[in-house]
Nucleic acid binder design. Structure first.
Lengths: 204, 204
DNA sequence: CTCTGTATGTTGTCACCGTCAACTTTGGAG
DNA sequence: CTCCAAAGTTGACGGTGACAACATACAGAG
């Protein structure tokens, strides 16, 4: 099945190639013709499986968001506390730390995850996958409120605030004015950021 | 001097055109050939004044950062409070608000301001201009500490935290999962974000 | 004032990319 | 077995960034 005229599962192979390119070169490196070259198929083959380059990018973005969600989940899984309030706070911190670490460790994928054009084809499933990390953060914040750690009135806007903080931190270190900070300093700054946000949310 | 073979100040004209393109189309819209077309000069003329496309982008980024700095300064100028502590806190808020408003009001320019490739030619002057907004934020935070509003130990990491928050907020609304929020809701979320950060920094 | 060199702008070209149209091969349904 | 639709290919077009070679105009030396 592998060497026939028909590839068999070309779509998956192309996505693999696209993810590989994205991983190292970021959005600009995702080149249709290069994907085809890597898979050993001729250019334009991709057009049987994707409508557009944007369509490919959306697929990569979906993959990247999935990876991000996984990273965030394992951040949560690493929390050991038994006390409900403490646990909720730790979860928030770890989910934030995981977010930033994923971003800095996978700059290409992370960038593409937020590069999806609004005109792109958005199937129900794909749209859902693209906001999965956001949904996960919301779960954590719900628990932060339900556990009593955070005043309920803060809940509505807490998601955007938290997301903004870690997202901005990531991007500032990826392509911003502090992109050349040493990693120990960066980690310290991240701790302070997470602590600041937590104080801001918890304070009565 | 205008219709001669030599343009006179082609470089400035090209930058103007580039800024115009950047304003509406973002980074992808800054096309050397289109710049040349707008100015009424033939393609490749730009290569007498810029080494590269990245060089042009860096120039636009410098301009954008200048605009951003101006916006932040007028945010500070709008603060009326006399009490030193209160004034310092207001300045921080207004500088943050101005940052976000500039980003959402000038998405193309704002995006480019943070798209400058690290390999780009960075003259001393240009490098300085690119971090001017960052320097301004640091001034505000110094005053926040000196006025006694913020514990001194928080000062070192406060810059990154504040910057991350407003930067992330801007990008989430420009190309993130909350990019379609209505403006009144967005403004409320911004208020909450700024309040959260302030609480996090002020709390003893 | 002339001469000449250098800065500035132009023309032509190349490789690369995304995309469309037309053609070819394959595998499976009837 | 036949035929058709899905999957892959070939070829082309317009657009872009970049390079090289050429043309022009200004400015300073004599």
């Amino acid at each position: 099945m592998t060497k026939s005229y028909h590839h068999g599962n070309l779509r998956a192979a192309l996505v693999d190639a696209a993810v590989g390119l994205a991983r190292e070169g970021g959005p600009d490196a995702v080149v249709l013709r290069e994907m085809a070259r890597l898979v050993g198929v001729s250019h334009n083959a991709a057009y049987r499986h994707f409508s557009d380059r944007d369509d490919v990018m959306a697929e990569v973005a979906e993959f990247a968001m999935g990876q991000l969600e996984t990273a965030m989940r394992s951040g949560i899984a690493s929390v050991r506390s038994r006390d409900r309030e403490v646990r909720a706070r730790r979860c928030l911190r770890e989910v934030g730390r995981a977010y930033v670490h994923f971003a800095l460790g996978n700059p290409g994928l992370f960038t593409i995850a937020f590069t999806v054009k609004s005109e792109a084809v958005l199937s129900e499933e794909r749209a859902l996958a693209l906001v999965a990390p956001y949904a996960l953060l919301n779960e954590v914040l719900d628990e932060l409120r339900d556990s009593g750690a955070m005043p309920a009135r803060r809940r509505p806007s807490a998601d955007v605030s938290c997301w903004a903080a870690v997202h901005g931190f990531s991007l500032l270190h990826l392509s911003g004015p502090v992109s050349d900070a040493p990693s120990t300093e960066r980690e310290a700054a991240l701790d302070h950021l997470l602590a600041t946000i937590e104080r801001g949310l918890i304070a009565p």
